[in-house]
Write a protein that binds this DNA or RNA. Structure first.
Lengths: 236, 236
DNA sequence: TACTATCAAGTTGTCTGACAGATTGTCAAG
DNA sequence: CTTGACAATCTGTCAGACAACTTGATAGTA
């Protein structure tokens, strides 16, 4: 690793200079996965920057999953730039929609189960409030966002941020797809309202009763029914 | 924004506590895109942490694209989340590992169920072959990759590419974490071999029998046992 | 009144020093 | 060979100081 030129130095913030330099070093191929980076003190000396700037660069590299730091040992190169978990590609076909739906089913049923184990009275109240709002909106027509908010409230009660984030992203994904006009409305608002009230009610009741298996089943039933309704709403 | 409880405080690093707290605040909906976060000094006071820890959290949020900081002005919420399902950031604590494990549990149990419905004889043969290879490797020591390959074979049989890709990425994620030496070996290879043979065998048998519920349960049992073993292998 | 310049206060970016907690390697004793 | 003690090293955190920048208020001028 060499010192940086003055021109480069003036262009970027110190932390970014450090980041770029370490990234360059990482991508030079001189290190393999699991290898140890120079220590913070060494990077300070090599780059002529303060430790704070070096640490800021390392924080970024950690956030990107490229590096893992252990107190007392050092910072180590991870396997490589981790791919995103899975790409939220645009839904271009019904089979793909089904794949995403199965993905969502996996997450939401587990989340319901966790929510049943972990939900506080506050959580349950929040779910019921979300359900109320959804009911009001359903009278006025489509209510995708309120539906997503209801599911989000359940995910929040799971106390697993990763699951919660993923479910929120998936919900947006499907909302976006539906908004593209792929769906014809075949169910009257009153009918839809009645079904949603019943199915969501069962979910919340199971969670409030802290019955993980019942919550899981209720969510599965709800989502599978919803899928069937959705598929029948699509012109073949 | 409220102060953190002591229990939460002890579980995560200071920087991670700050990160989680600010993220929670961001996602509470109290801020819109473009709105300004509390200043670093305010966050210090509110969280009872040093400025360095607060800055580290902000660095992470910046790296994730959630926040943008301007010298002299403050840190601002960006337009919205990047279009990825969930970010595969480096695992920095045991609670985070557990979150990822729950995520994995959700996916893998659903995948086992789908595999049971959809697996061909070829799929089953592939699983058994992966299991054989894993057994051989277990005799020689750790075999994380072969274990991941076994799980991948199941995921392939689910015929859901999104789930398959996600499971592969998650497996790599956890392998990376374990490789960093966070785990002490406490189980003898023979013992481990016996347990894996039994648990994996149950999974494959259930899939071969096209029994979705049995496959799901077998995978859950296997992963939950594995988690317990993993957690007991980490010195508190 | 509108515009410009100045300044103080506040904010992030960086530096420095110190200490805490964890890791690693060495050495001595049993 | 194993175990324990210890020193050196490393990252994580804290605190204080200063640099560079922004923002809003105020005063001066046309």
């Amino acid at each position: 690793m060499k010192s940086m030129s003055t021109a480069t130095r003036d262009q970027f913030s110190r932390a970014e200079q450090a980041y770029r330099h370490v990234l360059e070093f990482i991508e030079s191929g001189q290190l393999a996965a699991g290898d140890r980076l120079p220590s913070e003190a060494e990077l300070e000396a090599q780059l002529g920057l303060s430790r704070a700037s070096v640490r800021e660069a390392l924080a970024r590299l950690r956030a990107e999953g490229r590096v893992q730091s252990r107190r007392g040992s050092g910072s180590f190169l991870t396997e490589g730039r981790p791919a995103e978990l899975v790409r939220l590609s645009t839904i271009t076909s019904v089979p793909e929609l089904i794949e995403w739906h199965e993905f969502r089913l996996a997450l939401e049923s587990e989340v319901a189960s966790l929510a049943a184990e972990r939900a506080t009275d506050e959580d349950v109240a929040r779910m019921r409030a979300a359900q109320e709002l959804l009911m009001e909106r359903l009278s006025a027509g489509a209510a995708s966002r309120e539906d997503a908010a209801f599911h989000r409230a359940i995910a929040t009660a799971s106390r697993n941020r990763k699951l919660e984030d993923a479910i929120a992203a998936l919900a947006n994904h499907v909302i976006e797809w539906a908004r593209m006009g792929q769906v014809k409305r075949v169910m009257s608002p009153a009918e839809r309202r009645e079904i949603i009230a019943s199915e969501h009610g069962e979910i919340v009741d199971a969670i409030a009763a802290h019955n993980a298996e019942r919550a899981r089943s209720a969510v599965r039933r709800h989502l599978l029914n919803g899928r069937a309704r959705l598929l029948s709403a699509i012109d073949p």
